[in-house]
């Protein structure tokens, strides 16, 4: 709860107009769980700039020790593939592209 404090003379009091104000831009958040692992996308945050985006990401996504490093990227800069059938379906009948399709000679040992 807040308490009314008398305004000083000449001060203008901000009045809620009910109009929507501009939202902060959206940032995509990538967290590295520990050294040696890749940064992995975990979600997004709103923030006015990169520094506050990192702070917000820290408070939103690492407060239970989930990470040792955070990247943020403006969401607007991410270009996504379309989800059409032509994009990925052609690979579904080509199992031989998996390395497991081939017999590995014993001499090779551990790959």
């Amino acid at each position: 709860m807040t308490y009314e404090i008398p305004e000083l003379e000449g001060e203008e009091r901000a009045v809620a107009t009910g109009e929507a104000v501009g939202e902060w831009p959206l940032w995509e958040v990538f967290v590295r769980a520990k050294r040696g692992l890749n940064h992995v996308h975990v979600g997004s945050v709103h923030a006015a700039d990169a520094e506050t985006a990192i702070q917000n990401a820290r408070d939103t996504y690492t407060r239970r020790s989930e990470g040792v490093s955070v990247w943020v990227v403006p969401s607007a800069l991410i270009h996504a593939s379309d989800d059409s059938a032509a994009m990925f379906e052609p690979f579904e009948d080509k199992p031989y592209r998996h390395p497991t399709f081939y017999e590995i000679p014993d001499e090779v040992g551990q790959l």
Binding site: M1, N56, T60
Partner: peptide
């Protein structure tokens, strides 16, 4: 704690 539910953005509320 009084600012929780009153912050300008959800992220700042968490912070």
């Amino acid at each position: 704690a009084e600012f929780v539910t009153n912050a300008p953005e959800l992220e700042e509320e968490l912070a």
